[in-house]
């Protein structure tokens, strides 16, 4: 078997007051387009920071292309390009200056300039080449961040919410760019809060919640493994409802109600009984698979509820 692009083994991270990562293990294979999902504060950025050496794990082990990110940091950092979530930039420099500086940090000189020009071109930055970073719009700064992460042609590319606060057009451009990188053989790890994005791009998805891995699979299986399906009825259910039924309702809109139901339903299941008590029979329900978003919301919600209990 080939070396994994990223391998995490029991990674823990404790801050003074938060336990940000509670022993996370998984691997991302070379050539994958991998999605890392999770609600705000789940620990996604912390995990990414540890991969790039921006943060130190409290315990556990992380390897990038087989190189330990602490002991063999030179080799691991040469193989990973991280686009940070925050729109950071150095106000002293222009786009071109910043790229040559970043490329120089990786030991690359003039011989790399052709590649930097190509990056500018691909990311539509050529016009802004000599503009000071301070004067670029947010979207432009985001592109520069991407270019900076790629100056050393890393085999592993990590995008931490690259589409946050980005307009529709740029979002499309970024996706096609990510696709292209993937086709060219780069391993991509992506975090996003747009589930459709993950749905349309990622092979496998890991869901992180409160510092723990709550799911890891390819999408179809993630959905297939999920023990619920969605029942849709063309009717508004309101008023006093039995407890089980009311907690199973996931949405009401105009004249339609969606209900989370077990995949395996016995005729005498209490939920069906409660439904029939309000006048709805099983054959009035359209049953469908949940979307990734519904699975995601449920995975991360139930963990929150468990925490409360």
């Amino acid at each position: 078997m080939s070396i994994p692009a990223i391998e995490l083994h029991a990674v823990e991270k404790r801050y003074a007051t938060t336990h940000a990562l509670k022993g996370v293990s998984f691997r991302v294979e070379q050539g994958e387009f991998f999605g890392l999902l999770g609600p705000n504060g789940a620990g996604k950025s912390t995990l990414i920071n540890i991969m790039g050496g921006l943060a130190q794990a409290s315990s556990g082990k992380v390897e990038v292309m087989g190189h330990d990110v602490v002991r063999d940091y030179r080799n691991s950092r040469k193989r990973i390009g991280i686009v940070p979530q925050e729109l950071v930039y150095d106000p002293f420099f222009t786009v071109w200056e910043m790229l040559t500086i970043q490329s120089g940090y990786f030991g690359l000189g003039r011989e790399n300039h052709a590649w930097l020009e190509e990056l500018l071109d691909t990311l539509n930055l050529t016009e802004k080449r000599d503009e000071n970073l301070q004067r670029l719009s947010g979207g432009m700064k985001r592109r520069v961040l991407i270019a900076q992460a790629l100056v050393h042609r890393p085999p592993v590319v990590v995008l931490d919410e690259p589409t946050a606060g980005v307009d529709v057009e740029l979002r499309r451009a970024l996706w096609s760019f990510a696709h292209r990188l993937h086709k060219e053989g780069h391993t991509i790890l992506l975090t996003t809060h747009y589930l459709e994005e993950a749905e349309s791009m990622c092979d496998r998805i890991a869901v992180l919640n409160q510092g723990a891995l709550v799911a890891l699979n390819d999408q179809q299986e993630l959905i297939a493994q999920y023990p619920h399906q969605i029942g849709v009825v063309d009717q508004i259910l309101d008023g006093e409802l039995p407890q089980l039924l009311s907690s199973a309702i996931i949405s009401r809109s105009r004249n339609r109600t969606q209900i989370r139901m077990p995949r395996v339903l016995d005729a005498d299941h209490p939920l069906l009984q409660q439904l029939s008590a309000v006048g709805i029979q099983l054959d009035q329900l359209q049953l469908r698979d949940p979307t990734l978003e519904e699975v995601f919301l449920d995975l991360t919600r139930s963990a929150v509820e468990e925490e409360k209990r």
């Binding site: 050496g53 030179r74 991280i82 940070p84 950071v88 930039y89 150095d90 940090y105």
Partner: peptide
């Protein structure tokens, strides 16, 4: 300044000892 601007990450991500 680079710590406060956050751009210190560029140096920290590089393979510099």
């Amino acid at each position: 300044q680079s710590k406060m601007n956050g751009n210190i990450v560029f140096m920290l991500l590089a393979p510099l000892s």
